[in-house]
Amino acid sequence: MLDFLLIFRVLVFPGFTFILFFTLFCDWVERKIEARMQNRVGPAVAGPAGILQPLADFIKLLTKEEIIPRDAKKNIFRIAPIIAFSVMVFAICFLPIDGSSAISMSGFTGDLIFIMALVTVANFFLFMSGWASSNPYGGIGAARVLTQFLGYDIPLFLLALTPAFLAGSLTISAIAASQYLPFILLAPWGFVLFIIALQAELEKDPFDIPHAESEVVGGLETEYCGGKLAFLHLTRDVQIVLGAALVVELFLGGPYGPVFFGLPAFWYSLWFVLKVLAVVIVTEYVTCLFARLRIDQVLTANWRMLLPLSVLSLALTVAMATYVYPMVV
């Protein structure tokens, strides 16, 4: 009986199926917002207001011919996008969505670190997929993913420690549950910096170096087509959901919010979805506002600005939590 529930939770809700469709939905929101900000219509044909467009694109790509370049490292080329996608989804399964996460009810000690590590692994597989295509643009794009990721991993992790410190726990569900006051109010500096680092992590403007089409054409996706390209696109979208979900869990009080009637799980899921959408809208808004920086400017911004600032942010949080908040709260 318990096994059946677990399978349902992992495969249907709040696990794989939910994440998949939520990702496609977020993709639609993103495209729609970007289009509206740029004075375009955006997806409008498939479904009401084009809501089915991401799904249609996904299915269309799946039906396309699969071409593997002669020089590509074939096995890695084939499986790397799928592994990257799976790892991302796996990471989301540890986030409390309807009050508890898909895999284990209350997480385990230190699963914050585990999830951050999964993100690193997934990015590494994205790098592998570009590198295995044996195309200079794919290679450069992949190397850029890694360069950028190495730069932003450390600040991102330091910033993730800010809420962990406030909550006194490295368990995500504990961090989310301890936010009677969302940490965005207690440590707004940490939130702002986290969004900036996330923007780089998600390879969005002004940090979308790996996708600079005027320099590296399609980046790591250059040689991909068909189903594998579909999975690469999906990986990118899941990555955005994962990033946004992390912000929600760490700074916006997780899935918790007022429960009006009926099942708390329903309300928690609703709050989660709404909060993630809010974060997605913010990141998309930032994307539309900026031009792409040059790779050296990105790395300088990271090492000279973001890293010291995130250390400062952590120090400030520690000071505030030790001396100021106990008197106020």
């Binding site: 403007d205 979308d208 900026f290 031009a291 792409r292």
Partner: peptide, 16 residues
Amino acid sequence: AGLEIGYETLFQYMWR
């Protein structure tokens, strides 16, 4: 020029 430096919004505005 906006497109070349990755500023898609500028590109869309100008062409509109």
